[in-house]
Amino acid sequence: MALTRSTHFGIARKIVSNMTAESWEQIPHAGLVYEPEVTAFLAECKKLNEGCTDKSKKITINTVMIKVICEGLKAAPKMNAHLEFNRKLVRGCLHEFDHVDVSMPALLPNGEMMTLNMHDMGNKTLTEMTEAINDSLRRAKNTDLNEVMFEVSLDNTLQGLK
């Protein structure tokens, strides 16, 4: 994932960011749940798999949703960014990227959940996305995840100590 642009906050954005962070800490929040009517959407998703007998090649609703998210991020590139803000220093920067990477939850064969980081999904077709997801799941299935988690934990600890 290559960085395409970094924009440092000007004074106006610093003020708004600082006030937003303060409000987030001090003011009670309310949530909203919206349940859209997706019958037609699901019917279109079902059509994608008509005539497909190979279960590994079927396009899942998760894959379609990832495609929808990727297309949305490509249409609004400022949303495909990392926001960095240090409230104590009142400094911030928006880092925009050229690739759309997606993290998705996956259920492993042993029943545990794992987050898969799927790289450059914005340039893939639905079929390519399905193949990439299946390949990641296959690799996770054939990996000693306890050893991987130990290595990640050790690396995070060492980075924190630096």
Rank of each mutant, 00 (worst) to 15 (best):
T4L: 05
T7W: 05
F9R: 09
A12E: 11
S17C: 03
S17H: 09
N18S: 11
M19Q: 15
T20G: 00
A21K: 08
A21S: 12
W24D: 06
Q26R: 05
I27S: 06
I27G: 03
P28F: 02
P28H: 03
P28S: 08
P28R: 00
A30F: 11
V33Q: 02
V38W: 11
F41L: 13
F41K: 05
F41P: 00
L42M: 14
L42N: 11
C45E: 04
E50N: 06
T53A: 02
T53Q: 06
D54G: 01
K55F: 03
K58P: 05
I59V: 09
C70W: 02
G72P: 01
A76I: 14
A81C: 13
H82A: 15
L83D: 11
R87V: 11
L89E: 15
V90P: 04
G92R: 05
C93I: 11
C93Y: 04
F97Y: 15
D101P: 04
V102G: 12
S103C: 15
M104E: 04
M104Q: 06
P105V: 03
A106D: 09
P109R: 06
E112R: 15
D120W: 03
M121K: 09
G122K: 02
G122P: 06
N123I: 03
T130S: 02
E131N: 11
E131K: 06
A132Y: 15
S136V: 07
S136A: 15
L137E: 05
L137G: 05
A140I: 04
K141I: 07
K141W: 13
F150R: 10
V152K: 01
S153E: 08
N156F: 10
T157G: 00
L158I: 09
L158F: 08
G160Q: 05
